[in-house]
């Protein structure tokens, strides 16, 4: 089996699957896009991959809450195989709507190991969808966030990105991989640097293993330098690519 196979899981209303597939191929994966409708009938097929990405979009319109119907399909049809997939040391990444799906299906952070929803992403404080670039502080708590500078820039575009949790702070603190920061690089609750009012400025978390991660910003939208929102700040490389490169490197070295 080719261990560099990645899978982008599409649902009705996903809309970032093509660019996500594109960047996966660019960093070396052999990538497939498969619809949940197909996967629910062949759930075992996911075990043929090493990396699963849940892309951004509005799965099932997010009409009953973001990611909720997709999460329900996953719980009823894919969970058993996903559990095996994770136990095999493989990787899962959820971007924006994909993050919402992972959280609502209990795959992330899954501290209880029982796939119960533990945290949530709810409507932005502004109650509005917003597209803007944010500055993020990076921790290397996940395999996706190794070898970054302390802060990076990425665009966010969502209406339901406010991260909240019930458990205690220290437990969550260890799982946080990206936080919204202000111009002085301090985690912030100030709008618009923290665009949605996320608790503790949290923009992304990973599970304990660091192999399952979800983030609200869109790394697949910053893969060329010309996409950067300003030409005043110098950057060495577009900050979105490394998330995917790190996944490739991890699979190459550890799997």
């Amino acid at each position: 089996m080719n261990k560099f196979k990645s899978l982008v899981v599409k649902a009705d209303g996903s809309n970032c699957e093509i660019e996500t597939d594109f960047i996966l191929r660019k960093v070396g994966f052999e990538s497939d896009i498969i619809h949940l409708n197909t996967l629910m009938h062949e759930p075992k097929s996911i075990l043929g991959y090493s990396f699963i990405v849940f892309p951004g979009g509005f799965s099932y319109g997010d009409y009953t809450g973001s990611g909720r119907i997709a999460a329900s399909i996953i719980k009823h049809h894919l969970l058993e195989n996903l559990e095996t997939f994770i136990s095999q040391g493989k990787l899962i990444l959820g971007i924006c709507n994909g993050f919402q799906i992972l959280v609502k299906s209990g795959i992330l952070p899954n501290s209880s190991k029982s796939f119960k929803q533990e945290v949530s992403l709810i409507f932005n404080d502004s109650h509005k969808y917003e597209d803007r670039w944010v500055k993020l502080q990076v921790s290397d708590n996940s395999v996706f966030t190794k070898n970054f500078e302390k802060t990076i820039y990425l665009p966010v575009a969502h209406g339901e990105g406010k991260f909240i949790y019930e458990s205690n702070k220290t437990e969550i603190d260890d799982l946080v991989v990206l936080r919204y920061v202000d111009e002085k690089n301090k985690p912030t609750m100030k709008y618009p640097q923290n665009p949605n009012g996320s608790t503790d400025s949290i923009a992304a978390i990973a599970d304990e293993s660091g192999r399952v991660m979800g983030l609200m910003p869109h790394p697949e939208r910053f893969i060329r330098k010309e996409q950067f929102f300003t030409n005043k700040t110098e950057i060495n490389e577009p900050h979105g690519i490394r998330f995917f490169e790190n996944a490739f490197t991890y699979i190459k070295e550890e799997l």
């Binding site: 093509i18 660019e19 509005k128 869109h218 929102f229």
Partner: peptide
């Protein structure tokens, strides 16, 4: 701001920019 102007990851010059 309410419009997603970057989905599809092909937008180079956006409606708003700069620091």
């Amino acid at each position: 701001r309410q419009y997603d102007h970057e989905v599809q990851s092909q937008t180079l010059i956006k409606p708003l920019g700069g620091e």
